[in-house]
Nucleic acid binder design. Structure first.
Length: 245
DNA sequence: CGCCAGGCAACAC
DNA sequence: GTGTTGCATGGC
């Protein structure tokens, strides 16, 4: 009987190197406040770059991480453009604006009432703890109402360059089809499995950059190939292997 | 029209 | 701790 998903029998690091070779570096996280330097999808913030992350970029990543919860990224862009136009982009500005006005501003991102409350709480904690210079712990982020595992890890990896792999729906779907995990495998189990696998091959040095690119590549691959209804016939994770014996 | 998108908290058990 | 439900827009 044929495999349900023909992409099986490939290691985690082979998945990473194949995606990187075929799709190229994704350069996440897309940074809206630097859009003058290029379109969102081809310019990114690289946490491994030697320069320290700027305050506005840290908070912008956090904004995007909350706004993209169960939401298409294009809707996040629209919402964040509206925030820029309304001059609601810094933690102070988020706190200054009324919650109902903030909700109206971010309406295109969906769940806008919940997300307005989340952004208020996030901005408050950001200022209170000086998160522009102090890197928050995962526990500190998870204590906040509205910040769950993926959002916390996205902030730590993409805003601060911490070596933490972000697990999302695309990751679970791909890894399930690859046979790495079960549907019930928990978030932290997937995260530890991926981190350990990649560290074993690439070592600790610069591993945050690997986590950064891998997650971004998985999202891209999940959009173009490993979709809800996958196009396995053209999937690069097995076709490229058949070509090279 | 229905389905989906880079989750999360609240609640039931 | 696991399972279910509400939250909401915009694109296809």
């Amino acid at each position: 009987m044929a495999e349900k998903y023909p992409c099986r029998k490939i290691t985690v690091n082979e998945v990473f190197t194949t995606l990187l070779r075929r799709y190229g570096p994704q350069g996440w996280w897309p940074i809206l406040s630097k859009r003058n330097r290029g379109p969102y999808d081809s310019y990114g913030y690289h946490p491994n770059a030697s320069k320290k992350p700027e305050r506005k970029n840290i908070f912008e990543v956090a904004l995007g991480a909350v706004l993209t919860q169960n939401t298409a990224w294009r809707n996040v862009i629209t919402a964040m453009e509206r925030m820029l136009e309304t001059h609601v982009f810094s933690p102070e500005e988020v706190l200054r604006l009324r919650e109902d006005a903030l909700a109206e501003c971010i309406r295109p991102s969906g769940y806008y009432n919940q997300k307005a409350k989340k952004l208020k709480i996030l901005a408050s904690a950001f200022i209170r703890n000086s998160w522009e210079t102090n890197i928050p712990s995962r526990g500190e982020l998870l204590e906040l109402w509205g910040i769950g595992r993926e959002t916390a890890d996205s902030i730590l990896l993409y805003a601060y360059g911490e070596p933490i792999f972000v697990v999302d729906a695309y990751t679970k779907r791909l890894f399930y089809r690859l046979g790495y995990i079960q549907e019930a495998t928990t978030y932290d189990e997937v995260r530890n499995f991926t981190q350990d696998s990649l560290k074993r091959v690439f070592g600790e040095t610069g591993i945050a950059g690997v986590f950064n690119e891998f997650h971004a590549l998985i999202v891209y691959h999940g959009k173009v190939s490993c979709r809800k209804v996958p196009t396995c016939e053209t999937c690069i994770l097995h076709t490229s292997r058949e070509e090279t014996p």
